[in-house]
Design a protein around this nucleic acid. Sequence first.
DNA 1: ATTCTGACA
DNA 2: TGTCAGGA
Length: 127
Amino acid sequence: MRIGELARQTGVSARSLRYYEQQGLVHSTRSAGGQRLYAATEVARVEIIRRLFDAGLSSKVIARVLPCVDSGTADVTEDAFTTMVGERDRLTADIARLVETRDALDELIAANVRHQIGLRRGDRGAG
DNA sequence: ATTCTGACA
DNA sequence: TGTCAGGA
């Protein structure tokens, strides 16, 4: 498939897909006219990449970890493994921070519901 | 109509 | 990353 279809199937823009390729994250062949051609398996790969980016991993880190995604079992480099463990720990810390922020918002919400009740009737409320 | 590379707000 | 230029 060409870049447009991959973009539609993954929700990742063609611009980002070209960027992913520059970073060595995705592979493509070229048509006679120079257009990128992707294997159907790249869809799942791109989805994983996008999720890692969303989770805060850098393109550099993602590139280091991706080989493990393909191999699944075999040659897992040591630095790749330690990188994954480190990123997992960072995500755990990020999650904890997000929960704290949500708790803070919950308190703010609880402290302000009464005002909303006074201002609006039939309000579905925040909880 | 779609994609490509390079470059910049 | 979005978007425009200038080509294929």
